[in-house]
Design a binder for these strands. Structure first.
Lengths: 238, 238
DNA sequence: ACCTGAACACCGTTCAAGT
DNA sequence: ACCTGAACACCGTTCAAGT
């Protein structure tokens, strides 16, 4: 909420570096790393993030890995919150646009959402960041227009397209969060039911089924298929 | 993962306090707070959690609010991770069992999930804790048997009941997480679409609908109704 | 059994000072 | 413009020592 002097300084240095990029003076554009750049800081932070999680990403640690004093990091990126934001921006840019696959609209839409989910799931850095930044709801930008186009082709009205997109993004985001927190707990599978879940008179078969590990992939596919069908049905009688 | 000596000591003190509760010796059971109890520590922590969020919950702060030195808190609760766990246990116990309302199975099941969601949403302490502990997937214990009973009454097989329950719990948990992270960002509504969401040739009406704030309550209700219908349909042709 | 003061090894951040 | 040493105000945690 408050913009510190450090952040403002970092902003200026970024601008300066950018405007200096297309060689405008007399000298040839030499880019010897006579010091450290913001990009190098992000590189180091991502590396720590992937290998040791968000708790290990310390301003002092980042500085140390680059052989530099802590205030240098502050000079380049402002502060820690700005570092998180920049990391999120970078990881967001790395997300590829998912192309739809399949013959029916339902198949194509499902394939895009599934592709997004798998892409997010494969990035340990994103998982670690999600714990700390609370963003990732706008992560899916590059693939959003693909989804919009599919819904339009299915004959949905503008309002319906908006509602459908919001539904799919909420769906993706929420399953991503579940992944994040499962990982945080160190669990690979869901074991939802607590000891209080069972009424004492419950038959053994049902008790076993309820307390067994949840197959989250099956849950994901089941809910995705149902959701996409419901959304497309909105267009039929619109 | 490692049980420290401090935790073990705290465990013993808890046991001792418990076994001393039903007055067993000669003296009458007097319970003057000649010092501090673990319960008082939890009270203080919950208060900070509700009013200032998880970042304000500091061992020193908790101690200070109780007029006690930091090591005293360690003596009673072990360490900070144990404090989080105990807080989660307490908040979990405060969750009431939601009773189903409605005439059809779908209505009754939806009413329970909706009730759970609203209950979680109303607890700022739970939100704050979810950011830090990553639990809350087993939060719904007291209402789970209600859901199981409803699915059984709808004629579903044991395996189907298990799958249905896992679906509903995953659904509840994921919407809870979305709430948590929206709150962390300080947003009240969802604005999913980033600037890249729109293909340039998109018609203005659709563009406006897509970039408008998402009505998350409508999304919740739409997905819940669709999910419950799909789950109950599993029982029809089982 | 319960509590304390003092310390250790960390944080994020700033700031005057260097080149 | 870029980097540093030193400091400030915090953390979680431990430990010997008190009663």
């Amino acid at each position: 909420m408050t913009e510190t002097a450090g952040e403002r300084r970092a902003q200026q240095s970024r601008e300066a570096a950018k405007s200096g990029e297309p060689g405008r003076g007399g000298e040839p554009a030499r880019r010897e790393p006579q010091g450290i750049t913001a990009e190098m800081i992000l590189d180091a932070a991502v590396k720590i993030l992937e290998e040791e999680g968000h708790a290990a990403v310390t301003m002092r640690r980042v500085a140390g890995d680059l052989g530099v004093a802590p205030p240098t990091v502050y000079w380049h990126v402002g502060n820690k919150e700005a570092l998180w934001a920049r990391l999120m921006d970078r990881l967001e840019q790395d997300l590829r646009c998912v192309q739809p696959v399949g013959s029916t609209p339902a198949e194509r839409i499902c394939s895009v959402v599934r592709g997004l989910h798998q892409q997010l799931r494969r990035s340990p850095a994103l998982h670690a960041l999600a714990e700390v930044t609370g963003r990732s709801l706008t992560l899916y930008s590059p693939s959003q227009s693909v989804l919009v186009a599919e819904f339009q082709r299915a004959g949905m009205s503008p309002r319906q397209v908006g509602f459908a997109l919001h539904n799919l993004l909420a769906f993706s985001a929420s399953f991503f969060y579940v992944d994040v927190f499962l990982l945080k707990e160190g669990r690979r599978t869901h074991h939802f039911a607590g000891p209080d879940a069972l009424a004492p008179e419950l038959d053994p078969d049902t008790a076993a089924a309820v307390t067994s590990d949840a197959d989250m992939d099956a849950v994901f596919e089941f809910q995705l298929a149902g959701l996409v069908d419901s959304l497309l049905a909105l267009g039929d009688d619109g």
